[in-house]
């Protein structure tokens, strides 16, 4: 079984097509939509948690690429700007997935990007605006 979070960029010609439906129907993949911006005439963006058998996952990804969807792993998208972060920790109780954690010894904030679900709650509440979105 493969279990990954990915970011899909749809060119606007694909926005009205049932792409995610095909992932389930043809490739037997389970999906969980973490975020979606899909507006007519514009590029669409979707953050998906995708799981299924390894070969199905691979074929599903190949299908997405073949129709013109650009794929990016999730961890690249939310980045902590280390020079801006003051390690105050006000983001810690706001993060719903436990990706931002206060180290009880160093009192510095750790960002575990593999746990991040790109909800972006931390982005606007960070006082020094150290959490950046790079979609």
């Amino acid at each position: 079984m493969v279990h990954k979070r990915i970011v899909l960029h749809f060119p606007h010609r694909l926005v009205d097509q049932p792409i995610v439906y095909r992932l389930t129907k043809d490739y037997d993949l389970q999906f969980n939509i973490l975020k979606a911006y899909v507006t007519p005439q514009e590029e669409g963006l979707m953050v998906l948690e995708l799981s299924g058998k390894k070969e199905n996952f691979q074929q599903g990804i190949e299908y997405l690429q073949s129709v013109g969807v650009k794929i990016q792993p999730l961890s690249q998208d939310i980045i902590r700007n280390e020079t801006k972060c003051t390690d105050c920790g006000v983001c810690v109780p706001i993060c719903p997935s436990g990706a931002l954690v206060m180290d009880s010894h160093t009192r510095k904030v750790h960002f575990y990007d593999n746990k991040c679900i790109a909800c972006e709650l931390c982005v606007k509440i960070c006082p020094s605006r150290a959490m950046e979105v790079h979609f």
Partner: peptide
């Protein structure tokens, strides 16, 4: 209730 600090303890240190 989870807590968060606005004041940076590591910078204070």
């Amino acid at each position: 209730v989870p807590t968060g600090n606005l004041s940076s303890y590591s910078k204070a240190r």
